[in-house]
Computed example of a mutant assay.
Amino acid sequence: MLTLACHCGLIRVRIDRRPDYIHECNCTLCSKTGARWGYFQPADVAVEGAARGYTRADKDDPGAEIGFCGRCGSTTHFTLTAGAVAKFGNGVMGVNMRLADERDLAGIELRFPDGRGWAGEGPFGYVRPASIIGEDAGLA
């Protein structure tokens, strides 16, 4: 089990397992929130504390609501919007893995999807090859 927390500790996120991989997306939302997303089933994630939500206004169907701490501003997680749930089902929730200690993520593949170039349908392209977290630091 991993317990992650925002900078001030007001919001805690508990997950029962490590993610299979982590995305560091280059879309404007992900890059400006500083998130690296691990993906989980919503039932496998427990968020404690009152997160504030932000849904981007620059898209007709934004897809996700970003949760963040109203006190320190740390991005903590995302949930799918009603439109995305209707389109894809409620099978995914994102957790900002930057909140974890990197040693707890050693050996996990870090992928770099091209969110800026993604049209919203089909698979992502990638802007550079994947890497393994901790490999350069001798943690893997």
Rank of each mutant, 00 (worst) to 15 (best):
C72E: 10
T33C: 02
G63Y: 00
Y21P: 04
A50S: 11
R12W: 05
H77Q: 01
R17M: 12
A51C: 08
R36I: 07
A57L: 14
G53L: 14
A5L: 00
G49F: 07
F40E: 11
Y54M: 09
A51M: 13
A35V: 11
R111N: 12
V92L: 09
L99P: 06
A137L: 09
R98H: 02
I11N: 08
G138E: 13
A64W: 06
I66E: 04
M97V: 11
R36V: 11
I11W: 08
A57Q: 13
Q41N: 14
R128G: 12
M1T: 11
I132M: 13
I133W: 04
L99E: 05
V47L: 09
V95T: 05
R111S: 10
M93P: 00
A35I: 08
V127F: 04
T55C: 04
A35G: 05
D114M: 03
H7D: 14
T33P: 03
L99D: 03
G120K: 02
D104H: 04
I108R: 06
G138R: 08
V127H: 01
A82T: 13
F78K: 00
V127I: 15
L80A: 05
L139V: 10
R52Q: 14
N90Q: 04
G117R: 11
R18G: 05
V13H: 02
A51S: 15
G38N: 03
L110E: 07
T33K: 13
G49S: 12
I22S: 06
Q41G: 07
N96Q: 07
P123L: 05
T28Q: 02
L80F: 05
G83N: 07
G117D: 07
E109S: 13
G63T: 00
A137N: 08
A84S: 14
F124L: 06
W37G: 02
G107V: 08
V95E: 03
D61L: 02
V13I: 13
G120M: 01
D104G: 03
N26A: 05
P123E: 15
D60L: 03
G134F: 11
R116S: 04
T3N: 06
S131Y: 02
G34S: 08
A137S: 06
F112S: 09
H77C: 03
R71Y: 11
R12G: 10
H23C: 02
H23N: 14
A140W: 06
V127P: 01
C25W: 01
V95G: 09
G120A: 03
A35C: 09
E135R: 13
D60N: 02
T76N: 03
V95L: 08
A84V: 07
H7M: 10
R71H: 12
I133C: 04
R111F: 12
G38A: 01
A100D: 10
S31A: 14
V92W: 11
L139P: 13
M93Q: 12
R98S: 05
R98G: 01
G134Y: 06
L29A: 01
D104T: 07
D136Y: 09
G9T: 07
A43I: 01
L10C: 09
D44T: 09
M93L: 13
V45I: 07
V13K: 12
S31P: 00
